[in-house]
Amino acid sequence: MDLNKRYTPQTWPDHPETATLEGKNKFVGFWLLLAAETVTFASLFATYLALKDKGPSGMEFSAAGLFELPLVFAMTMILLTSSLTSVYAIYHMKNHNFKAMQAWLGITVLLGLAFLGLEIYEFNHYVHLGFGYTNSAFSSAFYTLVGTHGAHVVFGLSWFIALMIRNAKRGLNMYNAPKFYLAALYWHFIDVVWVFIFTVVYLMGVIG
């Protein structure tokens, strides 16, 4: 594989992410990793459901009393939108339009950072109310589930940023196209997990 090979939109393959054997391997391997991640998050969800509202006798916190929907709604909208902007980035990647791709990735990263900021604000707020990580089984399970998702967001953002900086001068080639594609895939998966978090943790939490 020649890194210096220059592509134009006319010579750029239809599926650059799977055009090389390395790309194909990364692609399949990454999907398998997502399958494993599915089980990981299922384990965390299962634990959360088993430990929801469970704590020492006289615990003052419950999901119904704690969670506030407006904040969660804002976070959900931001993350959903960032999923769409990463679709735009990949759309431009397939058209071999590097600048547009970088721009859309930049927007995705900004939205992701906004989401992360809100999540940190939320956690900070709960901790100030006295709902710390070691407060109860419920708090441990809640922070571990949502926090693991948050850690995935951090990792996804770092990945996007590293790719953008690293390839800013290089442009698109067969070596990094699969990486951009997979980072976007990862971002969608983060969104999938969030859909279940806002449904199972927050919405079902609020109704008790």
């Binding site: 494993a36 991640e37 089980v39 990981t40 384990s43 965390l44 634990t47 088993a50 430990l51 469970k54 704590g55 020492p56 615990m59 990580y133 070691t134 109860s136 089984a137 419920f138 708090s139 441990s140 399970a141 571990t144």
Partner: peptide
């Protein structure tokens, strides 16, 4: 993955004060 999650809980329970398995704190 389930083993990793379980072991993580064990690490957090023993080292960082989490309560997944501590019955007095609502764990199981």
């Amino acid at each position: 993955p389930p083993l990793t999650v379980g072991i993580f809980f064990m690490v957090f329970d023993r080292l960082f004060g989490a309560n997944f398995f501590d019955v007095t704190m609502g764990g199981n």
